[in-house]
């Protein structure tokens, strides 16, 4: 039996999902907007979705996670965030010689929060550093998406050892939880300045994760 969930993503869900690492981070100051959007999703019965629909959903998922709004910070073990997207031409490492270090928050040299403030007001000036309701940081190195193929990303998202222990339902919940904090996921579709947002919508992305998961997490060959 499927479960229908409709809620305003926020601290109520945070309490339920306290095992997720980002929840330990402090909330930002009161901004113009301090809560996330309405996110609804229905958890389908595993196996209730044909693999072909799951594969189509993953194609959209990959379009999202490989987009510069997501992939620029989902970088590998060199710990260097990237600048890429329509305004950059060829991808290049973040300017100012930035490295986030093994801490992935820049603690070894220059904290990300020196410029990227913890503030849920996404409306920045063009070319100003983006900010979010969670402390700015790189995700764990095993979550690398930059310069990764669809098959590689699919294998990573299918492996709880490389998703912080999350299965597909928990991945979808993670997205709504982040949105409740006005975090990085929600920012990807509301990036401020003149940045191109991630494709589709957060609502569609959540639904695609659930469709892909219920279809048995089919992965492309390349």
């Amino acid at each position: 039996m499927s479960q229908a969930i409709t809620r305003r993503a926020g601290l109520g869900l945070a309490a339920l999902l306290c095992a997720l690492a980002p929840l330990s981070l402090a909330l930002g100051p009161a901004g113009a907007e301090t809560s996330g959007p309405e996110i609804s999703f229905e958890i389908p019965e595993p196996g209730s979705v044909p693999p072909t629909l799951g594969a189509e959903a993953f194609e959209r998922i990959y379009e999202v996670v490989s987009h510069p709004r997501c992939a620029n910070c989902h970088v590998g073990e060199d710990n260097r965030p990237m600048w890429s997207g329509p305004s950059y031409g060829a991808p290049r490492p973040h300017g100012m010689n930035i490295t986030a270090g093994e801490s992935r928050i820049g603690a070894e040299t220059l904290l990300c929060s020196t410029c990227h403030r913890t503030n849920g007001d996404f409306d920045t000036d063009p070319h100003a550093p983006p900010r979010a309701g969670l402390d700015w940081r790189l995700p764990p190195v095993e979550f690398q998406w930059f310069d990764r193929s669809a098959a590689q990303v699919c294998a990573q998202l299918s492996d709880p050892e490389r998703t912080g222990g999350r299965d597909w339902v928990e991945l979808a919940r993670h997205l709504t939880e982040d949105a409740g904090h006005r975090g990085f996921v929600l920012w990807g579709w509301n990036p401020g300045g003149n940045r191109e947002p991630a494709p589709y919508s957060l609502q569609t992305h959540v639904e695609d994760i659930l469709t892909w998961g219920a279809a048995g997490m089919p992965c492309p060959e390349s």
């Binding site: 930002g28 100051p29 009161a30 901004g31 220059l110 904290l111 929060s113 020196t114 410029c115 990227h116 403030r117 913890t118 503030n119 007001d121 100003a128 550093p129 900010r131």
Partner: peptide, 15 residues
Amino acid sequence: GQAVRACQVQAQELE
């Protein structure tokens, strides 16, 4: 105690 760019810190962060 942390270096920040004052142009990016909003007044509402200062309380």
